[in-house]
Amino acid sequence: MNDSKRIEITGRGIPLRGNDIDTDRIIPARYLRTVTFDGLGEHAFEDDRKALKAEGKVHVFDEPKYAAGEVLLVNKNFGCGSSREHAPQAIVRFGKGIRAIVGESFAEIFYGNCIMLGVPCAVVSAAHVNDLMAAVEAKPEQAVSVDLRTKTVSVGNLKVPFEMPEGARQQFLEGNWDTTGELLAGKEEIQKTAQKLPYFADFR
């Protein structure tokens, strides 16, 4: 499947500053009262957006100049807290749809959830995140490009390296980040492993 390959993702950036942004902030728990992921996009960061509005400020997700953003730029420990996949599901459904995230570091479960959705998370140094954000803030209309072949993020004249586990990078490049099929292929081995475990056959 060609369209599942993630080779180079290019789109406008959204600079979202702040460390330790947890998944409760990305999508408040009241929106988890649902049996689908539909419609979550509009509620992304809802409480943060409202709180800023009340102070007469504007959240980046409400700034018209970032409305067409497809590459999210974040700081440290992004997506910590609850394992809710609703968080990345809300992000990919926001506006035009976020297709890649670039940040200083990511919480582990969030990072894994993004892989499962085909959203690469590129890890760059703190200084480089700052440079990228500054570049986007200065000129929001210029595209940010996340190139998985060269492991670089570029915007305008700025080009910085990013890190990503090799396995995940290959999954994206080859378009096989959707794991179910691959796991099912190991069915016989699954049974063998299960049989070896002393407890697996049944409880008690």
Binding site: S83, R84, E85, I109, N113, T179, T180, L184, I190
Partner: peptide, 21 residues
């Protein structure tokens, strides 16, 4: 013991396994 996302819940239901580092 660890937490997983919903797509992984799907994988565990379908295969009883996960792809893990």
């Amino acid at each position: 013991a660890f937490g997983i996302g919903t797509s992984q819940v799907r994988d565990v239901l379908a295969t009883q396994t996960l792809s893990m580092a």
